[in-house]
Write a protein that binds this DNA or RNA. Structure first.
Lengths: 161, 161
DNA sequence: ATCGGGTATGATATACTGTTACGTTTTCTG
DNA sequence: CAGAAAACGTAACAGTATATCATACCCGAT
């Protein structure tokens, strides 16, 4: 098993500021629970499921369990604000890159679970063109590629030799 | 609500032949249950969940319920053979277009549920290039666009006027 | 101060999705 | 026919998501 690579480049400080202002602009605020959820997601550096997140957040506070419910509500809020993205092929969630307009491509490593998010405007453009040709009005896109990251691929090759 | 559009262009006869030979090449066969699952999926003309499928297939035979288990096994087999694709953002399954090499783009209508699958080699190429640049070895890609199809978009516009 | 409203969270239940383990039936084949 | 392998069933369970109702808290108006 290769070591998880840190792949989503987000600074905690700027993330917190960004989320706080997004929430305020939305008429809400960055409550302690929301902050803890955001932090747990940030610390994971990879997609985390809602229930896993619930345990992580609860664990911080002396094992007190957080209602799955609340986690989902917070995840919904965060995704609506664009600060968190759902990884469809994993049923999990990650912190969005700063500047991610919702058209990022996710490269997901089966080995270490790391996710690399990149902006790919040409790809988004292709999809838009294709959609127009179909008379289709897109409002959300999912582009996810599963495979092995560089280090996991190396490890695998050695193992097989 | 607009009428569901028929979007996946597959002829039943050729589909059955294709699946049968794929199964035989795999050392299996097209059993009655597998045939009924395939048919139900074909008739739906849109993504269908596993449990929904279970009911549809069971309903044909006097309400006898088909084990979710068997449905999943068959779906797994079909997806391995490439005759069925999983729609990640819907937790559902559709018959693959003939010639779909696994790199199709799905346009999913939120209104009528219809799915339009198209081949988009340029897009696959873009993803491959990007993967190489990252040292990433892809083995599976998911490209799904949610939105409104032509007719549902029209209906919506009228409703709003 | 307290009443009322809104926001946030909890508690509980339930639905939906997917997997595992094991047993039975069928079919093929020697 | 015996044995093996494939196909399917049954049951239990794990994981993911939502619905509903109750509660805590803040804050402004009375």
């Amino acid at each position: 098993m290769a070591e998880p690579a840190r792949t989503i480049s987000v600074e905690w400080g700027s993330l917190e500021r960004r989320v706080r202002s997004a929430l305020i602009g939305h008429g809400s605020e960055l409550t302690p629970l929301r902050l803890r959820v955001l932090r747990a997601l940030f610390d994971a550096h990879q997609p985390v499921g809602a229930y896993d997140l619930s345990e992580r957040v609860g664990g911080e506070v002396g094992g007190r369990r957080i209602a799955a419910n609340s986690i989902y509500r917070i995840l919904l809020l965060f995704t609506e604000l664009g600060v968190v993205r759902r990884v469809e092929s994993r049923n999990a969630y990650v912190v969005a890159r700063d500047g991610d307009a919702g058209s990022d491509v996710f490269f997901l490593c089966d080995g270490c679970g790391a996710v690399t998010a990149i902006d790919q405007p040409q790809l988004a453009a292709l999809l838009t063109i294709q959609a127009s040709a179909l008379g289709f009005h897109p409002h959300h896109q999912v582009v996810e590629v599963a495979g092995q990251c560089r280090s996991c691929a190396k490890t695998l090759t050695k193992d097989q030799s």
